[in-house]
Computed example of a mutant assay.
Amino acid sequence: MKMKVTAIVLLQLFLISCSGTISSSKKEYQLTKESKPESDWKFDTKEWSLENQIFNGTGSAEHWAAITSKKQLPENYQITFDVNLTSGNLFEVMLNFEGQNYIRTYLYNIDQNIVIGRGTYIKNSDEYGKRGGPTVLKKPFDFSSNVWHKVKIQVQNKQLKFIVDENTSLECSLEKQNLSQKGKIGFLTNGKSQIKNLVIKTL
């Protein structure tokens, strides 16, 4: 009987580890001391690194640094993390990234806004129009450099909520705005960005 229970538990763990999504109903994705970014993410080691449980991204106005997950986001999910932009003016979360299209959820310190938009990202191309994309919604936000900001993103029942520092938020319907409804997660920066306390969980 014990052997049977052990086999069932091991099978469940195996199925979770082989899941096509980055998180499941039984397991969250987190940055921990044991995290191995190369097993979960695609990135250029000259642009992104993980040190002391903090993702460090280095891009420029001419070349945005990108990191994308190897696994899909679940249909309903919540993402939380802290971000610090130490140079540059853009930090962006790529949601439901599939092919070349994704949902832009980003903080922009030139216009001092948080933004939801339609994104395009073509790997290995820095041409204008082959990264970023049009705005769907935006709201004023005091996006200061060298300050840690708390970000919370939820997608549930095809409704997107984007909240920064608990008091500035945007919300929209993926269907009504014709936004991508499935795909992976990624991060983009045109400067130097730090991400800590990253948790992705299934709702």
Rank of each mutant, 00 (worst) to 15 (best):
W41M: 02
K42Y: 13
F43V: 00
F43L: 06
E47I: 06
E47A: 11
W48P: 01
L50R: 02
E51N: 07
E51F: 05
E51A: 08
N52K: 03
Q53R: 14
Q53F: 01
I54N: 05
N56F: 01
T58N: 15
G59H: 02
G59E: 02
S60G: 09
E62L: 15
E62N: 11
H63G: 04
H63A: 05
H63W: 14
H63K: 11
W64H: 01
A66Q: 12
I67K: 04
T68V: 12
T68R: 08
S69D: 02
K70I: 15
K71M: 10
K71I: 08
Q72S: 15
Q72P: 00
Q72G: 03
L73Y: 05
P74R: 08
E75S: 11
E75P: 05
Y77P: 01
Y77E: 00
Q78P: 01
I79K: 02
I79H: 02
T80K: 09
F81G: 03
D82S: 15
D82F: 11
D82N: 14
D82W: 06
D82Y: 15
N84E: 15
L85R: 05
L85S: 10
T86E: 13
T86S: 14
S87I: 06
G88H: 06
N89Y: 10
N89Q: 14
L90D: 04
L90V: 07
F91C: 00
M94Q: 15
M94H: 14
L95P: 02
L95G: 13
N96V: 13
N96L: 07
F97M: 09
G99D: 04
Y102V: 09
T105F: 10
Y106F: 05
Y106P: 05
Y106R: 07
N109T: 09
I110N: 12
I110F: 11
D111L: 08
N113M: 07
I114W: 07
V115L: 13
I116P: 04
I116W: 00
R118K: 12
T120S: 08
Y121I: 09
I122H: 10
I122K: 07
I122Q: 14
K123F: 12
N124S: 13
S125V: 01
S125L: 04
E127R: 10
E127Q: 15
Y128E: 15
Y128W: 13
G129S: 08
R131T: 07
G132Y: 06
G133Q: 08
P134Y: 10
P134K: 02
T135S: 12
V136I: 11
L137T: 10
L137I: 06
K138W: 00
K139M: 12
P140N: 11
P140T: 08
F141L: 11
F141R: 02
F143Q: 10
S145N: 13
S145M: 08
S145V: 12
N146P: 03
V147S: 07
H149E: 11
V151W: 04
Q154I: 15
